[in-house]
């Protein structure tokens, strides 16, 4: 077993079943863990956590294949593969992640490493337009608030009957254009939203609901 010196140094590293390692593993080359490892792994190469392996460590490698149990975050420059027998509690970060049927994981998956730089400029203009949408959609989502914009529409309807009818209908469907107009209409007349706020503050749902039904 302990024949020394003669063996080639290209041998891949294996931490066998009966092995317990506490500490930090670093360096280059492929590593297969079949035993128990606790600490940290930072590898330039493929890391395989075999079935039966119990690892409690934050793991970083070029490629990570999990078949055993892992408690800790995984970061791979190339890819992460969770085989069917994998049990993982931790976050996965890699441009490519594969999870086989049967594998169990609890944690966040981040595959955006390479794309974050592209996405960020793309989302920012979208985010600028979104607040307008959310302002319009947020009151629309609330049934109480929906009644708010409708009631100011009625006094407006006295002056322009066709216009408000059209404005109310597209409000949920096409949000952006009417949304820009609605807040202008809401701004001068804040009377309808004000009863909504104290109704919520009372905390008891039964009372505001009754008031709402009575208002109808």
């Amino acid at each position: 077993m302990a024949a020394p010196i003669s063996r080639g140094q290209t041998a891949a590293s294996v931490l066998a079943e009966g092995l317990t390692l506490t500490g930090r593993v670093a360096g280059s080359g492929d590593l297969e863990v079949r035993g128990h490892l606790e600490g940290e792994v930072d590898l330039e190469g493929e890391l395989t956590l075999a079935e039966g392996a119990t690892v409690r460590a934050n793991v970083s490698a070029t490629r990570v294949v999990v078949r055993g149990a892992l408690l800790g975050d995984v970061r791979a420059g190339d890819s992460i593969v969770l085989e069917a027998s994998a049990r993982v509690v931790g976050d996965l970060t890699s441009p490519r992640i594969t999870i086989a049927l049967g594998a169990q994981i609890r944690g966040n998956l981040d595959m955006s490493e390479a794309e974050t730089t592209r996405i960020v400029p793309a989302t920012r203009p979208a985010v600028v337009s979104r607040p307008v949408e959310t302002r319009a959609s947020a009151p629309a989502a609330r049934p109480m608030a929906q009644k708010g914009p409708i009631t100011p529409a009625k006094p407006v309807a006295v002056t322009r009957k066709p216009a408000p009818v059209v404005a109310v209908a597209p409000a949920p469907a096409a949000e952006e254009a009417p949304a820009a107009e609605e807040p202008k209409a809401d701004a001068p007349r804040k009377e309808p939203p004000s009863p909504v706020v104290p109704a919520i503050k009372k905390g008891q749902k039964a009372q505001p609901k009754r008031k709402a039904h009575e208002a109808k």
């Binding site: 066998a16 092995l19 317990t20 390692l21 593993v25 280059s28």
Partner: peptide
Amino acid sequence: GAGIVIEGEVESDE
């Protein structure tokens, strides 16, 4: 393996 650096404690039955 030759490229591996371990800092810590290693216990083995094998």
